[in-house]
């Protein structure tokens, strides 16, 4: 999948400060924290969790629609970072590595635990839950703002196909079936949406 290829190709990017816990040691770089992590400093893992735990949890929860499962995935992702030396700094930022890992594990879990029909039902339930949830965070990152704006610039239909593919790992034919649109339309629409997104985000990347 393309998202897996990302792990090899993404380029470095700084931490998302506004996503991190206010108690984290914002001054320590990811590289320093990773170095001490590799030296067995569990406190570095704690700091990295404070920095990126919220991002990983939020993404997992969005995919799995379950607090418990999101918690499980978040723990899994950070323990993977702890025990496996799989992350390579020259292949991208730590934050993006964690995002890709969280998405991959969450979608795997989604596929293994629920049938297609169950997922459909669950999705429809979640579609009703569109009202904003109270935020623990008072601020958002500039990157987050830009991404939101970029997504907002898409048409509803374009956003729909992009989010279905990204958060649910749906294939084009599954998206076509769900929204009752031709397969060719799904294909062109999703690609067009990503092209727009890329253009809008290009300046911030």
């Amino acid at each position: 999948m393309a998202i897996q290829a990302l792990e090899c190709l993404i380029k470095p990017m700084g931490p998302i400060e506004s996503w991190e816990d206010t108690a984290s040691e914002a001054m320590a770089s990811d590289a320093d924290l990773l170095a001490s992590l590799r030296a067995g400093q569990v406190e570095s893992l704690r700091t990295l969790y404070q920095r990126y735990g919220r991002l990983v949890y939020t993404l997992s929860r969005r995919i799995l629609h379950s607090d418990e499962e999101a918690e499980e995935i978040t723990q899994d992702v950070f323990l993977t970072l702890w025990k496996k030396d799989a992350y390579q700094a020259n292949r991208g930022s730590l934050s993006r590595y964690l995002v890709v890992l969280a998405r991959s594990r969450s979608i795997d879990k989604l596929r293994s635990q629920t049938s297609h029909r169950q997922r459909l039902n669950k999705w429809h339930l979640m579609m009703a839950d569109v009202s904003p949830t109270p935020l623990d965070m008072a601020t958002l990152t500039e990157r987050g703002e830009r991404t939101r704006q970029a997504l907002a610039s898409l048409s509803d239909k374009e956003r729909q196909v992009i989010e279905s593919a990204y958060y649910e790992g749906l294939s084009q034919s599954e998206i076509a079936q769900r929204f009752n649109i031709p397969l060719g339309t799904v294909k062109s629409r999703s690609r067009q949406a990503l092209r727009k997104l890329r253009q809008t985000l290009e300046t911030s990347l």
Binding site: A2, I3, A5, L6, L9, I10, K11, I16, W19, V42, L45, R46, Y49, Q50, G53, R54, L55, Y57, T58, L59, R61, R62, D67, A70, E71, T74, Q75, F78, L79, R96, V99, V100, R103, P132, T133, L135, D136, M137, L140, T141, R143, G144, T147, R148, A150, L151, I162, E163, Y166, L194, R195, L197, R198, L201, E202, L205
Partner: peptide, 26 residues
């Protein structure tokens, strides 16, 4: 293009994990 797609989750509203998760992971 891959980077643009990877940016998608940043648009989500941040959700706080349960308070005990940090300690559980450590």
């Amino acid at each position: 293009y891959q980077e643009a797609l990877a940016m998608v989750p940043y648009a989500l509203e941040p959700q706080s994990p349960p308070p005990g998760l940090e300690e559980a992971i450590v």
